[in-house]
Simulated scan of single mutants.
Amino acid sequence: MRDILRSRTLEGIPHGFSTRDGLEAEDILANSVLVRVTQVHSAHAVVAEAAWDIPPEADAIVTATGGLALAIVTADCGPVLLSDNAAGVVAAAHAGWRGALEGVIENTVEAMCRLGAHPASISAAIGPTVAQSSYEVDGNFRTRFAEADHRFFASGRAGHWQFDLPGYVAERLRAAGVGRIDDLSEDTYTQTDRFYSFRRATHLGEDTGGRQISMVALPR
């Protein structure tokens, strides 16, 4: 039995966050077509009406088309799955620090609303992400953020800070008007046997190619 994480905020919508075991996706992909993008750490959100022959460069996918399973991959960045059940609109976003800072969350919500969603009716789940205690950054990194966002940085060792990426992503969701937000609070860095972590693999000199996959779909 694979270890698949789900969120109560997305109950009734086929979805899942994988672990190192991979994603047993029969319930998500049943009668569905897998849709992915070429992720480039951007704020770009695209609307999918069918699978692409050549995936576009983007970091969020939005659809109101039944039978499409939207998928993004991560290995420390924040995987965010969103749904407005009443409107029949879902989305999957890859929210690393750069994409979140530049507006990938807001662009995703905006694209959902163009398809008929309403921010207050959207539920969002933040999957396995590097936790604040595991995410050390330097002062130059912190200066990229507005002063109002410095509350997401805790003091660390001299000249360094601990950045709360999932907390920051949750705040961007709140600012976009999203009605329900669920942070699964799973740290990719510390759970060695459960999740891939690009940051941990880099620190240990290991292969950095492992990724989790997160998926959400609208039934046909």
Rank of each mutant, 00 (worst) to 15 (best):
A131H: 04
A170Y: 11
L10Q: 03
A120Q: 07
V73N: 15
A93W: 01
I105T: 10
Y189H: 04
G179M: 04
A154K: 11
A176Q: 02
D182P: 07
E49V: 02
A92I: 02
A117S: 09
V137R: 15
A45C: 05
S18K: 05
V37F: 08
S7Y: 07
R142P: 01
Y135N: 13
I54T: 13
H44D: 14
G139E: 14
G22K: 11
R36Q: 13
N85L: 12
I126L: 14
E102M: 02
A48F: 05
E106R: 10
V130H: 05
I13C: 09
R172Y: 01
D187A: 05
A170M: 11
R2M: 10
Y168M: 11
D76Y: 04
A48D: 10
R98T: 02
G22Q: 11
S155R: 15
S32N: 15
G96D: 15
I122L: 10
P56D: 09
G177T: 08
G103Y: 07
S121E: 11
R194N: 04
E11L: 12
A92S: 08
I181G: 09
S155G: 13
T65E: 12
L81D: 08
G66E: 08
D21K: 09
G205P: 15
H118E: 12
S42A: 06
E110F: 04
T9I: 11
A64W: 04
V37A: 15
H203G: 03
L204S: 14
V40K: 15
D149R: 00
A91K: 04
D21Y: 10
A25F: 04
E106Q: 11
Q212H: 12
D53L: 03
R174L: 06
T188M: 12
V35Y: 06
G205F: 01
G116I: 06
E171P: 02
G167V: 09
G96P: 00
H150R: 09
D149W: 01
Q39M: 11
T65Y: 05
V33K: 15
F195G: 01
V47P: 07
N140L: 14
L115E: 10
V178W: 10
S42K: 04
T190W: 00
V46M: 06
S42L: 09
T38N: 15
R180T: 00
E106D: 13
I72S: 03
A217D: 04
A45K: 02
V137Y: 05
S185F: 00
S42C: 05
